[in-house]
Computed example of a mutant assay.
Amino acid sequence: MPAYGSGAMPTVWQPQDLHELSELRNRLQGRYCFTAGGTLLRTQWEGGLVASPEHLICLSELPGVSDIYAEEQQLVIGALTRLNSCEVDTLVAQFPLLQEAIRVIAAPSIRNVATLGGNIVSGVGDTITALLVYDAQLCWMTDRGMEIRSLASWLSGGQDGRRNPEDVLVSIHLPIQDKDSLAVDMDHHNPHMKEISYYRKLGRRETFSASLVTVAMHGEIGVDGRWKRIAIAAGGGSGMAMRLPLCEQLLLDEVASVGQAAVLASMVMTEFVTYSDAFASERYRKQTAGNLLAAGLWEAMN
């Protein structure tokens, strides 16, 4: 496998397949860092937030990890797919919140290099809230072989130590609505099922800055005016994004109305776990997330 580097610069390795990658991980024994687009890593190194590693393992030459395709009622996106490719792909367009989240990440020049997998593995990427409401599953190459985990469980693993930094994200899997189920809905005179999709990011300035808060909401309102499905998530900054099941339960099976907006905002304040830093207090983040989601609900009802 190719390798290059000199002096104080890291040695860069470019495995050509997953077998070479596995051998390389075993040989370097943790003295390395994975990279693909490297946009976040460069920012961290230049800011002195993390030390430059002895070895870099570049994943960009691995086959099949930059593809987008539909398979068995799911959309599969290779972890090394560039953000700009996801932004314009017709298959990814089935998941508009993901494309909206990508459009507000950094600048076009960054999105031309950065990868979807890198945005996720950072643990704080702006796509994570959108992927959470789509029930994303992640495929990892681990010491035990290939494993599928939900995005939500992987995020929680960062809190309790179950996340292994040597695992390699290979692909992201998003469930596609069963066409047969959709046909049944239509047969039962359900042509007016209303789909709700909402994503917002609030940053410290208009573009190219870390988010303070990101929120996403995705669901369906039936012909009887009640919520049939609802998924809500919030995150932002260096905090962990999370689904908000109490907020979801608050709406599920209830008649959808503008009056739910204030109640939803209050519940978000209670359930959303976030933090304070030099830019915003915990209360501000909670209140902002609640207001953004309430605004999304209000828009959906008007």
Rank of each mutant, 00 (worst) to 15 (best):
L244C: 14
S209K: 05
I77E: 06
D17N: 15
R82V: 06
I110M: 01
L91T: 03
W154T: 15
D135A: 12
D126R: 03
S238E: 12
G296V: 02
E20L: 00
L41D: 07
Q73P: 00
P245I: 13
G118S: 06
V223S: 15
L138R: 00
A130R: 03
D187Q: 14
S257E: 09
V92R: 00
G145M: 02
G161D: 00
T274V: 09
A278C: 03
R25D: 05
M217H: 03
G47V: 02
Y69L: 10
D167V: 04
S281F: 09
R162W: 07
S109K: 08
D160C: 10
Y284C: 06
M242G: 12
A183W: 15
N291S: 13
Q94G: 13
R285Q: 11
H55E: 03
N119K: 03
H189N: 11
V168S: 01
N164I: 04
L174K: 00
S60A: 11
A79T: 02
Y198F: 15
V12L: 09
T115W: 09
L97T: 13
L212N: 06
M217C: 11
L252V: 07
E254V: 07
L151P: 05
L59Y: 09
T214P: 00
G157H: 07
V213D: 01
P108R: 02
Y32M: 02
I232G: 08
G237M: 10
E254I: 00
M146H: 06
L132F: 10
L212E: 05
F34E: 06
E166G: 06
M9D: 15
A256C: 12
V168A: 03
W154I: 13
S153I: 03
W154A: 14
L138N: 08
S276P: 02
V268E: 11
L56W: 11
E20I: 01
G222P: 04
E54W: 02
R42E: 13
I221R: 08
G296T: 00
M141P: 02
C86H: 01
G235T: 10
R103Y: 03
A183D: 11
Q16F: 02
F95C: 07
M267W: 13
A8K: 12
R31A: 15
A280R: 05
L28G: 05
M186C: 09
T270C: 11
V104M: 04
D180Y: 13
C33H: 11
P2A: 12
W45R: 09
E248L: 06
L202E: 12
A3P: 01
Q29M: 09
A231Y: 12
W140G: 02
C247H: 09
S197P: 01
Q74H: 12
G78F: 02
E61Q: 14
G38E: 05
I232A: 07
N112V: 00
V215P: 05
L174A: 01
T288I: 12
V170I: 15
N84W: 10
L151Y: 02
I128W: 06
G47K: 12
G64D: 07
V273Q: 14
E166I: 00
L246F: 12
E46N: 15
V124S: 14
H189I: 09
G161R: 04
I102V: 15
W154S: 13
L252S: 07
G235Y: 12
M146T: 13
I221S: 04
D185N: 14
S281C: 04
P2D: 14
R111M: 09
A51P: 01
A3R: 13
A294K: 02
L80E: 11
S85Y: 11
D160Y: 08
M141N: 07
M146E: 15
